[in-house]
Write a protein that binds this DNA or RNA. Sequence first.
DNA 1: AATCCGGGGAG
DNA 2: CTCCCAGGATT
Length: 334
Amino acid sequence: MTEAWQERLLDWYRAEARQLPWRGLTDPYRVWVSEAMLQQTTVAAVLPYYERWLERFPTVEALAEAAEEDVMAAWAGLGYYRRARNLQAGARHVVREGWPAGAQEWRGLPGVGRYTAGAVASIALGEDAPVVDGNIERVYARFTVDDTAPPRLNGRAWVWAESALVRGRAAEWNQALMELGARVCRPRSPLCGECPLAPECRAREVGTADRLPTRKARPTPRSLNLAVWLVNDQDTLWLRQAGEGEWWTGLWVPPMGEGSIPLGFAGTGLESVGDLKTVVTKHRLTLRVHRGQSRTAPASFHRVPYDQIAERATPAFVSRALKLAEAGQRRIDL
DNA sequence: AATCCGGGGAG
DNA sequence: CTCCCAGGATT
């Protein structure tokens, strides 16, 4: 049976939910794409990508038949690029075998774990499947004052989500909990005064909401220095596809490394134009950006016209490096 | 349960 | 700088 606080949250969600492009959809493909993009990624970051993706790959068949290069280009800038490859591999699986019938079958697709399977099954299939994401884990920790540290907290949150699930309205319920975590039960400065669950929330009662969930001491990321060379030939830039086991596997990257510029460039004017910082999982990278010209390059490199770089699958740092090089150029011209 | 996966953006 | 994001896979 549905309790009063559950009805209150559902009412709050109906009144306060953000209008997002994937809200209200029941097409499995569209729900799946949204969940894949949203993994470890903020809603704001996904917004510019979601509809563009659906225009380019409107159906699961279109995605299955697309060239991997186009798929990666459409994902470029979102990070965790394995998600895009998994999504296409999953699309090919669906075209071959048909749609998974429920959460359990969804788990069989690459890149689909307990969360994503529950999300797609509840939202697209109407199945009574719970979900736990970072938002719901936080709501749970505060609602029940559970100071268990992650990752154990996650398992306890799943038990709670299963028991709290409003049967028959799982799609709405799951999204309501996530929306509450994102908008009201925020990581910092939770808005307990606006929370529909405040009367029942134990952290609110005790006054420890902003200290939950317990944060786990994070190992300090390892710092690493890399050099990047933006080497052009006329109106083209030398790029290569990063190989297996390298950073940004499969994406187009400029020559880079810890030492000097790779052999094979007959470079001139290789000047430093400044530093960039980026983070790759547990590494903090400082990229020293250089620019120069060369008519030749190792065989793995291709000339990419400047006006086509934006259409290639490149890591986010490439456009930032190009901007830096332009600024450096302007300074030199002075 | 712990660790890695090899990103990125907001504040 | 720190935090953490609608996580998944591997060991």
